[in-house]
């Protein structure tokens, strides 16, 4: 099983809301956090353990850099410690890289879809899955550039990785729309190549436009194009965990709860209407 997340909407949990979630236990089916924020000990992981006592948790990594020239062994050990303590319902990372020759770049850099990409990534994913003793989900990223002469679509790379490692996928529909605006990719063509059965989780969020470039800030509500793509995807998948992410202009928790309830109702309506 790729995840044990509830098959409904979940929310991204960010630091401004942690206290309130511990105290008030709002009705959210599951929470997703960024794994690296809970590396080490002390107050952060103690707070997460309190939340874990009441909710399923998805650990979503942002800094492993699976496509980097090497894996960071300290990072892997810290993730393993976190996974052992939290017993998460899902563990995920991105199809991205962030380190080359001891030099780290704090962002989700797109992997060049050139000769060697499948071998590089599948070796790393196998290693991580063996180390964690569980499958992980890999997420498509929003991109701002393309490498020259790329030989695969992002979805083709992801499909190969699923086939070769048994990993699952996070499908971020917002990221597809961002890459469509910035690079002209066809989200529906990407969708056609993705093994939807291996999608363990969907992400939606909002981007913001700066000088004509769609920046994936997670700083706004999802756009109509994102909702439309979401509907197409979840009609095909049936009930599946869908995460709403918000990282910028973070609203108060009660306001975010309204967005969450809206998403939950929206998904439920589609799944009720969809034929099994």
């Amino acid at each position: 099983m790729l995840t044990s997340l509830p098959l409904c909407a979940g929310l991204g949990l960010r630091s401004p809301h942690i206290q309130a979630v511990i105290q008030d236990q709002p009705p959210v089916a599951w929470w997703e956090v960024h794994s690296e924020n809970y590396f080490g000990g002390g107050a952060p992981i103690a707070a997460l353990e309190k939340i874990r006592a009441n909710y399923p948790i998805s650990l979503h990594g942002v800094a492993m850099g699976l496509g980097s020239s090497t894996l960071d062994s300290l990072h892997l050990k810290q993730l393993k410690t976190l996974v052992d303590r939290i017993e998460p319902a899902a563990v995920s990372e991105h199809l991205a890289w962030n380190r080359l020759n001891q030099h780290a770049y704090a962002d989700l850099l797109p992997v060049p879809r050139l000769e060697g990409v499948i071998e590089q990534l599948s070796e790393r994913i196998n290693l991580v899955q063996d180390f964690l003793q569980r499958p992980i989900l890999i997420e498509n990223v929003s991109s701002y550039i393309q490498f020259a002469d790329e030989i695969y679509l992002e979805s083709e790379v992801l499909a190969q990785l699923v086939a070769q490692t048994g990993c699952g996928l996070i499908l971020d529909v917002n990221n597809l729309i961002v890459s469509q605006i910035n690079l002209g990719i066809d989200p529906y063509l990407e969708l056609a190549h993705l093994p939807l059965k291996s999608v363990g989780e969907i992400h939606i969020a909002g981007f913001e436009l700066f000088d004509g470039v769609a920046i994936d800030t997670h700083g706004a509500a999802p756009t109509p194009a994102v909702w439309q793509l979401l509907d197409v995807v979840i009609q095909q998948t049936g009930p599946i965990p869908v995460l709403l992410e918000r990282d910028n202009h973070i609203p108060a928790l009660n306001e975010l709860m309204l967005d969450y309830q809206h998403l939950n109702a929206h998904c439920a309506a589609i799944w009720q209407g969809a034929k099994p």
Binding site: Y105, Y144, I145, Q146, F147, A148, L183, I215
Partner: peptide, 20 residues
């Protein structure tokens, strides 16, 4: 390495990294 049409967007990565 970067396709000419999208090279200008390297600024986004430079700024993301610096701002992060």
């Amino acid at each position: 390495a970067i396709s000419p049409a999208t090279q200008a967007n390297m600024t986004v990565y430079r700024n993301n990294i610096r701002l992060n």
